[in-house]
Amino acid sequence: MSIVRPRQVKLLYFAWVREKIGRGSEEITLPDDIATVADLVAWLKTRGPEFSEAFARPNVVRAALDKAHVKPDAPIAEAREIAFFPPVTGG
């Protein structure tokens, strides 16, 4: 028997992803059928025009799970903090 519990995660947005979405962070309950970062992006895009706009260009927005870079097919698993941002431009 498995215990299904709500998965609370913190989402962070940076640079133009943050500007398009209109906020820098939020706490959400992950829907049960979301397993990977790509699943989460697909779900986020259904939440409103600001999200569909931010994630419009496929594979441009990068992601990090608990402050480590990941690919779209990465399982979210027990991550507590999920960040989305444009390709980095430091240095």
């Binding site: 940076f14 640079a15 133009w16 990090a64 870079h69 960040a83 941002f85 444009p86 980095v88 431009t89 430091g90 240095g91």
Partner: peptide, 12 residues
């Protein structure tokens, strides 16, 4: 420098 530019999370 090359790795910093490719992976450190900064945005200008």
């Amino acid at each position: 420098m090359d790795y910093l530019k490719a992976s450190a999370p900064f945005w200008k």
